[in-house]
Computed example of a mutant assay.
Amino acid sequence: MWRGTDRSRSQMILTEYRHDYKTKDSKSVYLVRHSSRSQQTVLEQFLMVERDSFGRFTPTIELKDFPSGLSDRESMLKLADWLHRLGVAIEDNWSQP
């Protein structure tokens, strides 16, 4: 049985970081990966996190390569699966000190 501490199943890799020391704005871009043994797939998406000078946090994720030709129900279930898998990867990365 897989446990949440198995980092081989999910990863977050910082691919870009920008900080403006004058305005105190920052932007971090992560590649988020989640491997599913049951589906034998790897989901990879980019997550952008921006902070403004007031500390407001704005996360953005662009879901690329979403399958076409699905019914409304199938699309919503696929979206739920992807969001769950991305959530698992983010939680795995940030829950460990």
Rank of each mutant, 00 (worst) to 15 (best):
residue 24 K to C: 12
residue 70 L to R: 07
residue 22 K to I: 15
residue 55 G to P: 00
residue 42 V to I: 15
residue 22 K to A: 15
residue 41 T to E: 14
residue 20 D to C: 12
residue 39 Q to T: 10
residue 70 L to N: 03
residue 73 R to S: 14
residue 1 M to P: 01
residue 82 W to F: 06
residue 11 Q to R: 10
residue 73 R to D: 12
residue 81 D to N: 07
residue 85 R to I: 00
residue 9 R to M: 11
residue 77 L to T: 09
residue 44 E to S: 12
residue 69 G to P: 01
residue 58 T to A: 10
residue 86 L to R: 01
residue 6 D to M: 06
residue 44 E to Q: 15
residue 89 A to M: 00
residue 5 T to V: 12
residue 5 T to G: 10
residue 28 S to F: 10
residue 15 T to V: 12
residue 23 T to G: 04
residue 87 G to H: 00
residue 36 S to L: 05
residue 44 E to D: 14
residue 31 L to M: 11
residue 34 H to D: 05
residue 37 R to F: 09
residue 25 D to L: 10
residue 40 Q to H: 12
residue 31 L to Y: 05
residue 83 L to N: 07
residue 52 D to Y: 05
residue 54 F to P: 00
residue 95 S to M: 03
residue 85 R to C: 02
residue 2 W to A: 11
residue 85 R to S: 03
residue 33 R to W: 02
residue 81 D to E: 14
residue 24 K to A: 15
residue 92 D to Y: 01
residue 92 D to L: 00
residue 4 G to L: 06
residue 85 R to K: 11
residue 55 G to H: 03
residue 59 P to C: 06
residue 69 G to W: 05
residue 96 Q to S: 12
residue 18 R to F: 14
residue 38 S to E: 10
residue 41 T to P: 03
residue 9 R to F: 09
residue 17 Y to G: 10
residue 87 G to T: 02
residue 84 H to K: 14
residue 93 N to W: 00
residue 87 G to A: 00
residue 64 K to W: 07
residue 16 E to S: 13
residue 27 K to Q: 13
residue 68 S to M: 06
residue 45 Q to N: 15
residue 45 Q to A: 05
residue 80 A to E: 13
residue 69 G to R: 03
residue 35 S to C: 07
residue 96 Q to R: 13
residue 92 D to N: 05
residue 73 R to E: 13
residue 95 S to V: 07
residue 10 S to P: 02
residue 33 R to S: 15
residue 85 R to Q: 08
residue 40 Q to I: 05
residue 46 F to K: 15
residue 35 S to K: 04
residue 10 S to Y: 05
residue 94 W to I: 09
residue 56 R to E: 12
residue 76 M to W: 08
residue 15 T to C: 08
residue 89 A to K: 00
residue 84 H to N: 13
residue 13 I to M: 05
residue 32 V to T: 01
residue 68 S to E: 11
residue 14 L to Y: 01
residue 27 K to T: 09
residue 33 R to I: 07
residue 64 K to A: 11
residue 36 S to R: 02
residue 3 R to E: 13
residue 55 G to A: 07
residue 61 I to F: 06
residue 13 I to N: 07
residue 59 P to K: 00
residue 11 Q to E: 07
residue 76 M to S: 09
residue 70 L to G: 02
residue 2 W to D: 10
residue 34 H to F: 12
residue 4 G to M: 06
residue 64 K to T: 14
residue 48 M to N: 08
residue 58 T to H: 12
residue 41 T to V: 14
residue 79 L to G: 01
residue 38 S to M: 08
residue 56 R to I: 06
residue 28 S to N: 10
residue 71 S to L: 06
residue 28 S to H: 12
residue 39 Q to D: 11
residue 49 V to R: 05
residue 73 R to Q: 14
residue 38 S to Q: 09
residue 37 R to I: 11
residue 50 E to T: 11
residue 33 R to A: 09
residue 20 D to R: 13
residue 1 M to H: 04
